[in-house]
Design a binder for these strands. Structure first.
Length: 459
DNA sequence: TACCCGGAAGTTCT
DNA sequence: CAGAACTTCCGGGT
């Protein structure tokens, strides 16, 4: 069989996310011949299909300035064709990670899961180096909102049976929907500084939805990680979370990122989202804004005078001290995950060294299993880039990325510490979550030479 | 009409 | 029971 035919065969048969490293290389060669372009050196894309699918247009351009665009489009086509689910965000430069492949289905190579072994690439450790078994804990505050994904699994009836809330049902309500006349498009571009904390890229949300357990009918109200009643978030947190996700810019967006000024584009829709979050079906913007006004005297949020629906965080949201938990949402007992206090204590005491983390961890009741990833630092831009992607991709159902415990020292070539916590959901075991985490790490970070890809170890 | 303001009381949590 | 963080309601302002 001719080379091109062979490649064409697997291109037809397999989704790009399922490609092995070799197949990625083969696809690149195939593109070279097919499109009569300069052959792309395989080391430019030394990764498997999953990692390839995480690359953005800009990543392609960076690697192959001449034909990156073409390659990106070619891959885009294949993703679209093979998945049946097209992530339109990918067209605008977002990586596509929307393929219905549950990370938990992957097996991680044994050597990856041992805390003591290093392999020159990625090592998964239990969170405490002194322990060989991961720490199971509770009461971790996931900075994960209960956000309805605008595009997935959501119907008008699911949101509110009576009221029509245009913004909620559509990610892009027209200004007339809100009556505010806001120009959503005028929002500044989203900034990695703000997005990285718990990024939920649209493609990731799609991906997350693949992992979402089947919920009772009523809970379809919130398709994305309808977690548990303990997952209450403060209003400013909620808004900040929405701000981090461009998916929700129709509700709220950054007006002036550097000053933490944000604008509410759809007050009604935002109130509905918030009410949804708190299980308060009668939430209105009037009430929400009253809650916002309480932030004035706490110096958390202030109104930008003269600008309607425009507010400002008075300090970087990540620095805002969280006090005691406030009113929780109304009961959602069917979604509850039980909490083990002694495990929470263990975890709390171990994490106490990091204040930010502690505050994150101390405020919820979700069973967790922290694991630690140590990724050797590298001056290689590709590796750094991938590491960044790993950081970004750590957010999906059952996961919380605790960016505050990332440590990286480029100059001294110290290990990159990445601690994250997987959250146990009622329907999903902790081990599954850890598998997901590992798979996620693998798909994001090119595997060291000689190690198997998740696909090859699983299939 | 829509948004904004802050007081007051009530609710639901830790 | 105290207190936080809202929620609900309200009268008034722009």
């Amino acid at each position: 069989m001719l080379f091109n035919e062979a490649v064409f065969h697997f291109i037809q048969a397999k989704h790009p996310q399922q490609w092995t490293k070799e197949e990625v290389a083969a696809w690149l060669r195939w593109c070279g011949e097919e499109y009569s372009i300069e052959t792309v050196p395989a080391d430019k894309f030394d990764m498997n299909g999953k990692a390839l699918c995480l690359l953005k247009r800009s990543d392609f351009m960076e690697r192959v300035p001449k034909n990156g665009d073409l390659l990106y489009n070619a891959l885009n086509k294949l993703v679209h064709k093979n998945s049946g689910v097209y992530d339109n965000q990918s067209q605008s430069g977002t990586s596509y990670q929307n393929i219905p492949t549950a990370p938990s289905s992957f097996q991680i190579p044994q050597q990856f899961s041992s805390p003591d072994q290093t392999n020159g690439g990625l090592v998964l450790l239990s969170r405490s180096n002194a322990q060989t078994t991961p720490v199971y804990t509770t009461k971790v505050k996931p900075f994960v909102p209960i956000l309805p994904h605008p595009a997935n699994h959501i119907t008008k009836q699911d949101i509110l049976p009576v009221t029509t809330v245009p913004g909620i049902l559509s990610p892009a309500p027209s200004p007339s929907d809100t009556g505010s006349g806001s120009d959503v498009d005028s929002c500044p571009e989203y900034d990695d500084r703000l997005v990285c904390r718990n990024p939920m890229q649209p493609s990731q949300l799609n991906y997350m939805n693949q992992l979402r357990p089947t919920m009772p009918t009523g809970s379809e109200l919130v398709p994305f990680l309808r977690s548990k009643e303990s997952d209450c978030r403060l209003l400013w947190e909620f808004i900040y979370q929405l701000l981090q996700n461009p998916c929700y810019k129709e509700y709220v967006c950054w007006e002036k990122l550097d000053d933490y000024v944000f604008r509410i584009n759809n007050p009604t829709g935002l109130a509905q989202l918030w009410g949804h979050q708190k299980n308060r079906t009668n939430m209105t913007y009037e009430k929400l804004s009253r809650a916002l006004r309480y932030y004035y005297r706490m110096n958390i949020i202030k109104k930008v005078s003269g600008k309607r629906l425009t507010y400002k965080f008075m300090q970087p949201p990540a620095n805002i001290q969280k006090g005691q938990r406030g009113a929780k949402p109304h009961s959602r007992s069917h979604l509850l995950t039980t909490c083990k206090d002694e495990e929470a204590d263990n975890f709390d005491s171990e994490m106490r060294s990091d204040d930010t983390l502690s505050s994150e961890l101390s405020q919820t009741s979700i069973e967790t299993k922290p694991i630690k990833l140590e990724i050797p630092e590298s001056h290689d831009p590709l590796r750094r880039d991938t590491r960044d992607k790993l950081t970004r991709s750590m957010s999906y159902p059952g996961m919380v990325h605790l960016s505050s415990v990332c440590h990286s020292t480029d100059i001294n070539d110290q290990p990159f510490d990445f601690t994250m916590t997987t959250l146990k959901r009622k329907e999903k075991s902790v081990d599954d979550s850890v598998s997901s985490a590992r798979a996620c790490a693998q798909l994001t970070f090119p595997l060291p030479v000689g190690l198997n890809s998740p696909e090859s170890t699983n299939s």
